[in-house]
Simulated assay, not measured.
Amino acid sequence: MIEQDVQRVCDLISSRRQVGVRTIIAIAGPPASGKSTLADAVVQSLNTQQSSAVPSATLVPMDGYHLDNCVLETRGLLARKGAPETFDGVGFCAAIRELQFTRHESFHPKFDRTMDLAIANAIAVHPATPVVVVEGNYLLMDSDPWRNLTDVYAATVFISPTLEELENRLQNRWISHGFDPQTALQRAIANDLPNAERVIRDSRKADLILSQNYTEFGMRNAF
């Protein structure tokens, strides 16, 4: 059950709280692994545990740093959207590193799946919020620029269902977007699954590794 994993992550965060800097936690995994669902649930849990008006935790997804479709089309990368080179990885890493020490309110982009684009300044991080949970596919990749955040994360979590389960979820995701089952499967095999295999193969070992199936919790929110 997801509740058990949420508690495990919250306990990990509690044990890794930083002094003098903001505590930044990475939740990584391949597409459709359930990391967005878990990360959102963790932030909600942390915020229900405190009575202050200031959020105890804020979620900053990597997806907000998708390059715009026009940029991807110009570079011939639109069909590869979701691959590492289709993100502003350098900008993302710089923004997360700055969150460690910033003492002012900061704003971050959020990806809108319906519109298929990033919305600038859609996420506000309060200067007094002590924990930021970051989630995304490539947070633990052992290559630049992603590994430049190795010393920033107070703790890391990796979610990795089987490739068979990921294929089913990815196909169902495209079906939910209106594609027939065969086209949905082709899309998953052509781009999403290679990205998933790359994440699993090239990510560093996390402090906590999970393989829980979050289907019952609502996989339509997972990414």
Rank of each mutant, 00 (worst) to 15 (best):
F217H: 15
S14V: 03
L166V: 03
L140A: 01
A41T: 07
Q4S: 13
S56G: 09
A41S: 13
N121C: 07
L193S: 02
L72W: 05
E85G: 04
L78G: 06
T74H: 10
L185Q: 14
D116F: 00
N195K: 04
P84D: 01
L59R: 14
L208C: 01
A95P: 13
N221A: 12
D63Q: 09
E73Q: 14
P181W: 02
M62A: 11
I2P: 04
S52G: 08
E197P: 04
R169I: 11
V71Q: 10
I2F: 06
E105V: 02
A196G: 00
A128P: 03
D68R: 11
L99Y: 04
Q7K: 13
R75G: 02
Q18N: 06
R169Q: 11
V19S: 14
Q171H: 04
E216Q: 00
I159C: 11
S160N: 08
L208A: 08
E165W: 05
P127W: 13
L166G: 03
N195F: 03
E216H: 07
Q212V: 11
A120I: 06
F111E: 09
V90F: 07
Q212M: 06
N213R: 11
T102K: 11
A188W: 11
D207K: 08
K81M: 02
V133T: 06
N221F: 14
P181N: 13
M115L: 14
A95M: 00
A57M: 02
H177W: 08
T86P: 00
V6R: 03
V54C: 04
D112A: 01
L163D: 14
P30F: 12
D192M: 08
S56H: 15
T215L: 04
N69Q: 02
R103T: 15
L46D: 05
G64S: 02
I189A: 10
I27V: 10
A122P: 10
V125S: 12
I159S: 04
T162K: 05
E105K: 11
V9R: 11
V133L: 12
S106H: 02
A95E: 01
A206F: 07
E135N: 06
L208W: 01
V131N: 00
E3Q: 13
L67R: 14
F111D: 06
A196T: 06
T215E: 15
A118H: 00
L193A: 09
L193E: 01
T215K: 03
L170N: 09
Q182Y: 04
A188M: 15
L163C: 00
K205I: 14
